[in-house]
Computed example of a mutant assay.
Amino acid sequence: MVEQGFPPVTLIIPNYNGAHLLRRNLPFVMAAAAAYPGACPIVVVDDGSGDGSAEMLRGEFPSIRVVAHKANRGFAEAIRSGVDAAESEFLIFLNSDVRPREDFIAPLIRHLARADVFSVSPLVLDEDGRVNPVSWRCFRIRRGRLRSVRWRFDDLNPEVPTESLFASGGSVALRKSMFEALGGFLPLYKPFYSEDFDLGLRAWKRGWRTLLEPASRVMHERKGSISENVAARRVGKTRVRNRFLLEWTHMPGRDLALYLMPGYLLQLIGRLARLDLLYVEGFLAALRRLPEALRVRAEIRRHQVLDFWRIVDSVEQSFKSRI
């Protein structure tokens, strides 16, 4: 039981052509695992890398378990393989470009003792030590789009956790049983981006909360494996496409009709006027996945106990109560 001490935790790291990142950051991950009082194995899922990552791991980090895909399958399936390999109920996902502090594990795991907590985010720092906005997430509709609520770390009590809309998939602790009940990261967003936002919303809609724990801290490098391995245009198009899919999957129908769809039209006109075809291509790519998004939307509604704006209000009130 969690209350009796420090439960086993499995650290899962997806990797694609990130041998240099693993060499740089794995020593910090291993130090954190060694400092944690409970069992803490590390699993690296090599997602079809062509840079010899798997061989490097087996040679230079023999204590780490390597799960290797013969071909690249994408972030969601790499995580899925890591979850399948994990024997513990409590998991931590870390990207290969994330460097945790030695004491980051225990503050995250202690919250998972509560039955209504699905995931916990550490405080994410940039390379210069500044707090990254991805640490705490909340969104409101502004200017015809769903946009992130701005915040400052100075406004948050650093000693007290607060609710968050979702945790970044690059550094999050969660329960395996809940992750599996939700079906994990959805293929709708394959190959990357917005899977973590969607997962957090699906959990919240079942009444399972996400928290930010400022006592746990990690550093995230500015340039990660996606930007190094995928063409910038594809990255941009995928980001645009998946944000549309996320909104179509989760936003209330009234808000879609009254605010977001008119906003889409205005932005499409504006982008076309500036010959910004990437945005238009992303929108058209999202339309091709609309039937799948509607199926996911219907499935979410079958299990929903909290609506979107009630969740957002709860997150904002939690943050404000800790100022």
Rank of each mutant, 00 (worst) to 15 (best):
R243I: 15
R73L: 12
A115V: 07
E77N: 09
R301D: 09
R310Y: 10
L146K: 09
K223C: 08
R101N: 02
E292I: 13
R209E: 04
G224I: 00
N25Y: 03
P41F: 07
V44A: 03
R271Q: 08
D313A: 14
A19V: 14
G59R: 15
G270Y: 00
G282K: 03
Q317K: 14
I79Y: 05
S121V: 01
T238S: 11
N242H: 10
E299V: 04
R175S: 03
H250F: 06
V235P: 01
R150E: 15
Y193Q: 05
E316V: 14
Y259V: 00
V218F: 08
F61T: 08
R145A: 06
G48F: 01
A115G: 09
G236M: 08
L188S: 10
P7S: 07
V240K: 03
G38V: 03
W208V: 00
A78I: 00
P100H: 12
F197S: 11
F244T: 01
L112V: 03
R289D: 11
L246H: 09
E60A: 14
F179A: 04
W309S: 11
R222D: 01
E55V: 15
L186R: 06
Y36W: 03
E221W: 01
E281W: 10
L272G: 15
G38S: 02
F185V: 06
E159H: 11
D155T: 12
E213I: 04
R137M: 07
A181K: 07
S63D: 11
G82D: 00
E3R: 13
L165P: 10
R289M: 10
P107V: 07
S49V: 10
R217W: 02
K320D: 07
P27W: 08
A19T: 13
F319S: 05
S168T: 11
L211R: 10
D116M: 05
R73D: 04
V315F: 02
V9W: 02
F104S: 09
L188V: 13
D97A: 13
E89Y: 02
R23L: 15
L201I: 15
L11N: 08
S88Q: 06
M261C: 12
Y36P: 07
L22I: 12
R150S: 14
G253Y: 01
G184N: 08
L91A: 04
D51W: 00
R234K: 12
I323Y: 04
I323M: 12
V230Q: 02
V9F: 00
N157S: 13
N17V: 06
E127I: 06
F139V: 13
N157Y: 05
F308Y: 15
E247P: 04
E221Y: 08
R101A: 02
L245P: 07
K223E: 12
F166H: 13
R274M: 02
D126E: 00
N95G: 15
E195G: 06
P122M: 03
R271A: 13
F104Q: 09
F28A: 15
R297W: 08
S53A: 14
R241Y: 01
L201C: 11
P27I: 07
